Simulated assay, not measured.
Amino acid sequence: MFKRLFGGNDPAPAANRLAEVRNITIGRTVSLDPLAWRRLGEETVFSLDRDVLNISAQGSIALDSGQHVHRFYTDDHVMLQAMSDDAEGRESYDFSLFVPWTSAYPPGERERRIWRDRLSDPVFHGAAEELPDYPRYWFAESDAVQPPVTLWETVWDDRAATMPWSKIFQTCMLYARDLAGGRELMLALEMQPQDASGKTGETTHEIMVGIPLEMAEFSA
């Protein structure tokens, strides 16, 4: 999936309507098949206490390649993600589900630099976050230091809105580890939000743990 996220660009302009990916958009509910994560057994750290998601916000990322990333959020920051070749999400693929793991406010530039260095290494050592080690999924073909990916995400919290709720500049890297029952994902990122007025919010460091989803494992 995320291998196409090799670069970011400015946020896409507001469309007349928000994308719908397999009928998913703000205000809809998504039903999940719990076997999607239960099949990973006790090896996985991924956990979700429900099989229905109430979508209250959605984001979009326009890639230099012309492809689009569509993200759908619950109030407690569970994220369903899809790729597509169009802004409307008509042809979608590469689905994944992420839950938040940790969130922190770096106190200064030194901590931000340490975080970026961690995101540049071929393996993310997760002991400090009570996580296992994760090999890099993006740029997995190389063991060299690799700067993380940067991108802009435009986020909406109202389907009828004419302007987005916020834009978020992200510096991120995707990791994955193979388990007996499938693959577990981990997304580590620095987020710098900007509200509709252009005011920049506090920088945060986030970790999300996820799983790939098959098309048959969710519906709206």
Rank of each mutant, 00 (worst) to 15 (best):
K3V: 04
K3S: 07
L5D: 04
F6K: 15
F6P: 02
G8W: 11
G8K: 13
N9P: 02
D10H: 11
P13T: 09
A14C: 09
R17L: 01
V21F: 08
V21N: 10
T25R: 14
I26A: 05
G27F: 10
R28S: 14
T29G: 04
V30F: 06
L32W: 06
D33Q: 13
L35K: 13
W37C: 06
W37F: 07
R38W: 11
R39C: 09
E42C: 04
E43V: 00
T44A: 05
F46W: 11
S47H: 15
L48R: 11
R50I: 04
R50L: 07
D51V: 04
S56T: 14
Q58G: 03
G59E: 01
S60G: 01
L63H: 04
Q67C: 02
V69C: 03
H70I: 01
H70D: 02
R71S: 08
Y73M: 06
T74Y: 12
D75L: 13
D76K: 13
H77L: 07
M79E: 15
A82T: 08
D86S: 01
A87K: 03
E88V: 02
E88F: 01
S92R: 09
D94M: 09
D94N: 15
L97A: 09
F98V: 04
W101N: 14
A104H: 12
A104V: 11
P106I: 10
G108L: 08
G108D: 15
G108I: 08
E109K: 14
R110V: 06
E111A: 09
E111Q: 12
I114Y: 10
R118L: 11
L119D: 00
S120A: 07
S120C: 03
D121T: 09
V123P: 08
F124Q: 05
F124N: 05
H125Q: 10
G126V: 01
A127W: 11
E130K: 14
P132C: 03
D133C: 05
Y134M: 11
Y134A: 11
Y134K: 14
P135K: 02
E141K: 05
E141H: 05
S142D: 01
S142H: 03
D143E: 15
Q146L: 02
Q146A: 01
P148M: 00
P148Y: 00
L151D: 03
L151P: 00
L151F: 02
W156Y: 15
W156R: 07
D158F: 07
M163D: 11
S166K: 14
F169W: 14
T171I: 07
C172T: 01
L174K: 10
A176D: 10
A176C: 08
G181E: 02
G182Y: 01
R183D: 10
R183I: 09
R183K: 15
E184C: 10
E184Q: 13
A188Q: 08
M191I: 06
Q192H: 13
A196Q: 14
S197D: 13
K199L: 07
G201R: 13
T203H: 03
T203V: 09
T204V: 08
T204R: 06
T204Q: 07
I207D: 12
M208G: 10
V209E: 15
P212V: 07
M215D: 12
F218E: 05
S219R: 07
A220Y: 04
